[in-house]
């Protein structure tokens, strides 16, 4: 059965339109960030600025400690990512290579937390952070985000695909778990660990809900919060400056996307959902 040409063409048109809807806003944001506000209002349809200017970026640097904010975002994303990757790897290793009573139940409970809406833990976590005196600090943003079972799930899936006999050979050679982990398992799951790490970094970088609750002063803000300032208070009048912040917010995720896209798609692809 050959696919009808007209049918194929129709589908291609549909997909191209979808891609346009999905990708256009990103390009539009970049263009707008180099337009003076007046230009943006007058020439809404021009994607590219007629008179490119850095005006928005200058305003941005004048009104906000944007370097500090970017730094905050970067630190939060890095620490959370590293912590989650390490603990997820260790936990996944225990779930795959150790047998103990209650293993299945513990795994089930941990994975189950993925399906708990955040509002269920929101108030107590706010109180914990408040008790610890960490309100309005980047630590307050980081801590509750450390509890995330997605990494355990994905890394475990990847580990399970390693033939058990590889580990058995190492056991016959009297190798301890530390060495098996470092020399055998880690190198073999590295693609998955990398992909999960990138994914963690991106989602923490973009996290909005929790920082909104915790952070109060602009010096401690993360990028998504800075972004919100330009829309909520002034009703969108600073749209082009908001676009400048957007561009800064998007740069790192976009670079990571370009480099690691294959890896990540590969991990989600191969890990499967079972």
């Amino acid at each position: 059965m050959k696919t009808n040409r007209a049918v194929a063409l129709t589908w291609h048109i549909i997909f191209m339109a979808t891609v346009l809807i999905l990708v256009f806003p990103i390009i539009y944001a970049v263009g707008m960030s180099f337009k003076p506000l007046q230009d943006a209002y007058n020439n809404v349809l021009n994607i590219l600025p007629l008179h490119p200017s850095l005006e928005n970026y200058i305003t941005l640097f004048d009104t906000l400690p944007i370097l500090q904010i970017t730094m905050n975002t970067f630190i939060i994303a890095s620490v959370v990512t590293i912590f989650k990757i390490v603990t997820s790897f260790l936990a996944a290793y225990a779930f795959v290579y150790f047998d103990f009573k209650g293993k299945e139940i513990l795994y089930f409970v941990l994975i189950g937390t993925i399906f708990i809406p955040f509002t269920v833990t929101m108030i107590p976590n706010y109180l914990i952070i408040s008790e610890m005196g960490l309100l309005d600090s980047i630590w307050g943003v980081m801590l509750p985000q450390l509890a995330d079972a997605v990494g355990i799930f994905l890394i475990r899936q990847s580990m399970k695909s390693i033939p058990v006999s590889l580990v058995e050979v190492a056991r016959l050679d009297n190798m301890g778990h530390r060495r098996i982990m470092k020399d055998i398992v880690l190198p073999l799951v590295r693609p998955a660990v990398t992909a999960v790490g990138i994914w963690f970094f991106i989602s923490t970088w973009n996290e909005f809900v929790w920082p909104v609750l915790i952070l109060k002063t602009t010096d401690n803000y993360t990028l998504p919060l800075a972004l919100q300032m330009f829309i909520s208070s002034e009703g969108g009048t600073n749209f082009t400056v908001a676009m400048a912040v957007s561009v800064i917010t998007m740069i790192i995720p976009l670079i990571l996307y370009l480099i690691f896209q294959k890896y990540i798609i590969g991990t989600f692809t191969s890990s499967g959902i079972k």
């Binding site: 058995e168 050979v169 056991r171 016959l172 050679d173 009297n174 190798m175």
Partner: peptide, 9 residues
């Protein structure tokens, strides 16, 4: 334990 049995497999 396996590692102490002087076994190759």
């Amino acid at each position: 334990p396996s590692g102490h049995r002087n076994v190759a497999m």
